[in-house]
Design a protein around this nucleic acid. Structure first.
Lengths: 214, 214, 214, 214
DNA sequence: TATGAATGAGTTTTCATTCAT
DNA sequence: AATGAATGAAAACTCATTCAT
């Protein structure tokens, strides 16, 4: 019952990925950070092996967040690029963003535990995490600026604000208890809420400031 | 060194409040949920006494959140009412909201641990928590509707969306590591970000839909 | 299977003593520091209870050493005092010292793990340990000076040197493997070795320096 | 980055030596037994390779002790021999012994962990260790006897007793915490303590027993 | 010979909660 | 009502050793 050994960089990357997948699945199922023992079991490995690939659980979860956002932002960039080609850039961003979020509930779930998680990270781990995440966001920000012909810096700004809206709504809505959400009569579903709210924000963000007839 | 006994409802309420205060101070100082032992010590009581007033730590923290939002929303309602009297209702809401949030960092901090916290709540405790929070939000929503002459339901909606923006931005910015926040060059401070973002959202939310010249 | 509660200082002191006893017995039997789980079991308590009385295992073992030496040195002081009364002070010290050591093998055993133990102590725990041990030794040193009419400081010196001889011999001899000791033909038993070696040292320490006819 | 293979006895001995050196340096630096992984890294080898040269870590550390004492005793023998030629044998032994110890702090450090180490050795390893150490000591003992014209057996005896004094003093003094040692006012430094104590012992050990005027 | 990935037993410590006093 | 001693289930992480390559 000893796992096959991962020799070579490719195999090791794959194993690392497998561990992250295991952790992700468990987290999604339980909506709560899994233990090292559980992750190992799910990945078909021994507990110690997990620590061969990650220096601590916090680093592991950090990597999960980072990888998740990397993929999601990549998708977003692709959407923007193709929209840019078709000339229909206008409201593409909030729509693509909402789609991206809805496709990946794990990301929102992970965002929910991030504050708690960061608390427990060691200083260097947290620093590395923050830096990598920031860098990735800024990259997408630049792509957005290019696609929408926005001034420098405006891309990340929009990205961060849309993300904030999504994350905040998620936590109010579906975070833990979909059934007993806030005023389910008034605010029907996370999905429609998100689209509407992002739409409103986007409209305000792109309005000419001058003729503001509130 | 045995604490005076709290006879009668008033005395008991005061003691309950004292426990919550102790927990709140500790949480704010450490940015991490305090243990039962610590809370008791800070409140000058024995550990067991805490459990006379709260059935579990989760319930205690839930009450902390609820009380915090109750006070904050009360303030917000007052702001709206006075703005309404002065006739200057227009952008009063996002400004008051931002002010409210900035005055009470604990609330945002608490919001950060809420997902984790809810995970650990027992079902009935979580249900009660959700219900009370919802009810309180809807009450403020109605006041907002009255002050701004909005249709039914629109008040909570705006409230929830502004809250989402605030909570989401906070978590991106100041959650744990103010120094190493996201792209500090581009996105300077939580405070200014929040005001700007809420401003943009509010403009979009109140624009006539017809002449949308994006 | 819940242990009776130790209410009041006396009961708590007794329980603390019981835990130390349990640890001491286990250590003597296995000649290796017992785990927290084992100590608790031996003492008929839950693991967590041990940590109610000691902040860490290291502190516990430190207390074991301290208590052991306290008792042993007390005995030594008594011996010196009674010898002083009888006027037969001359070689009383090395003899009493040897007797003290032989009666208490645990002390020597503990001395053996002390370097290792100190390595693992936290700084404050180690500091406190060192200070208390030093203080205790100096107290006995003063008593020895009084009984033998020695100049100030000479008492601790003799104490430390005799202790060094005893500890060093023990570690060479019986530390772990009594059967396969060093040259069992030439150096028969720890006990006789110790008496002889201390006798030799004592003679040299009390010789007039002038007529040294080596 | 695969280490060159050690073909032939000489090459293998050299590699074995390199591993021991690595372990020794690490131990001296950290004052605590290094892990297999660390030793391997320091030696520029893979973990598995260490186990080609030593059947267990305990055996490795045992070898470290043995080699250390072998060198030290060799030096002592040389000192005695040269002192014997010059005719100035009288107090040469304690002086040479003290010098030997002071030059090699690692030895004392290793002595400190020996009890702990022996506890963990497997029976055969411990047996072999004890036997080799004994044999080496007896050899030096004989040389001492020859140089000082002592009766058979007296050499090891003196050797063991001086060693005991040194080891015991070291553990009281410098073992871990040089600053906070025992009564630093009364007992100034390990070095001077050792010389004085050995001097006293030596005088007592070589006094004629008959005219003992204590 | 050399490598280094995988193993998993083993340990300390924390802390919410209970309940005898 | 208040106390605080006792509980014991977790959980993270280490590290000597093995063995497939």
């Amino acid at each position: 019952m000893i796992a096959t050994r991962a020799y070579g960089e490719t195999a090791k990357d794959a194993r690392r990925k497998a561990i992250l997948d295991a952790a992700g699945h468990l987290f999604e199922a339980a909506r709560s950070l899994p233990t090292a023992a559980l992750i190992a079991k799910q990945a078909g490995l021994a507990k110690g092996t997990v620590y061969l690939y990650f220096e601590s659980l916090e680093e592991l979860f950090g990597a999960l967040v980072l990888d998740g956002w990397d993929a999601a932002l990549g998708e977003l960039e692709a959407s923007m690029a193709s929209a840019s080609e078709r000339g229909s850039v206008n409201n593409a961003f909030p729509i693509s963003f909402a789609a991206m979020v809805e496709t990946r509930p794990v990301l929102m779930l992970l965002d929910g535990v991030l504050p708690e998680l960061k608390t427990r990270m060691s200083d260097p781990v947290r620093q590395a995490f923050n830096e990598r995440l920031t860098r990735r966001l800024m990259q997408t920000g630049e792509r957005v600026e290019a696609a929408l012909q926005l001034p420098t810096g405006r891309g990340v700004q929009l990205l961060v604000r849309c993300h904030a809206m999504a994350r905040g709504l998620w936590q109010s809505f579906e975070a833990i208890d979909p059934s007993c959400a806030i005023a389910s009569s008034v605010l029907p579903s996370f999905s429609s809420e998100l689209r509407e709210a992002l739409g409103e924000y986007w409209r305000g963000a792109n309005a000419d400031v001058s003729p503001s007839h509130g």
